[in-house]
């Protein structure tokens, strides 16, 4: 199953790309699955930027102590906050935007 990932701003810097098609093996993949796939490609750094280990959720707020910025994940232009967070289901052709 394929989704389009758009790397905006900080994520453009981290990946060097503006967008790409990512293929996910799972039958019912979620945003969490996508992030772990991105981790395989770009390393743990991108996972740390996106997920706050303290909440186990998206880094909605910055961590001043760890010097980590807040980020936003959008699925088809809608922030994951309004969807199902990291468990938001992805379907063929979805556009996932990462920005921060």
């Amino acid at each position: 199953m394929k989704v389009e990932v758009r790397y905006l701003l900080m994520f453009h810097r981290l990946t060097g790309k503006t967008k790409e098609i990512i293929e996910l093996e799972q039958s019912n993949p979620t945003v969490r699955d996508l992030i772990s796939k991105l981790g395989q490609i770009y390393g743990q750094q991108i996972v740390d930027a996106l997920i706050d280990p303290k909440t186990g959720d998206v880094r909605y707020t910055p961590d001043l102590k760890e010097n980590k910025k807040a980020v936003r994940i959008l699925v088809n232009g809608r922030m994951t906050w309004w969807l199902n967070g990291l468990d938001t289901k992805l379907k063929e052709g979805d556009v996932v935007q990462l920005f921060g």
């Binding site: 758009r6 905006l8 701003l9 900080m10 810097r13 910055p62 001043l64 010097n67 910025k69 807040a70 980020v71 936003r72 959008l74 232009g77 935007q97 920005f99 921060g100």
Partner: peptide, 22 residues
Amino acid sequence: NDLFYELYSRYGTAGLTTIYNE
């Protein structure tokens, strides 16, 4: 550490073109 710091400081308000179109 603001959500928008990288956007403004690195890309300027031009970075908003990205965000708002998306």
